[in-house]
């Protein structure tokens, strides 16, 4: 069986700390939502606890086409989740 079609891509959003919004941190593969959530915890929050995680099937995201970018985004310049960025891991929480 080819797992390709059956282990879909999930986009991961993490609330790094209380008071911050969820931010896109990356993506991963998982066959279902439960596993996607667990995998996200292990992959994207290895260095800190107490965060909230969302996983969204990548196929469920509707993106604007680049051609419409100005008209589409100018009125809503604050939608930061459209500009995925890896969130910061605090220094000094490493394993040493």
């Amino acid at each position: 069986m080819n797992s390709q079609a059956h282990s879909p891509l999930w986009e991961v959003f993490v609330r790094a700390r209380r008071g911050l919004s969820h931010t896109h941190v990356g993506s991963l593969h998982a066959p279902d939502a439960e596993l996607a959530l667990r995998n996200a915890r292990d992959l994207y929050t290895r260095r800190q606890e107490g965060v909230s995680i969302w996983v969204v099937p990548a196929s469920a995201i509707t993106a604007s086409s680049p051609d419409e970018k100005d008209a589409f985004f100018d009125p809503a310049a604050d939608k930061v989740y459209r500009h995925p960025t890896f969130y910061e891991v605090p220094d000094g929480v490493a394993h040493l």
Partner: peptide
Amino acid sequence: EEDIALSN
């Protein structure tokens, strides 16, 4: 992904 989970 499971490699990472088992290590955790």
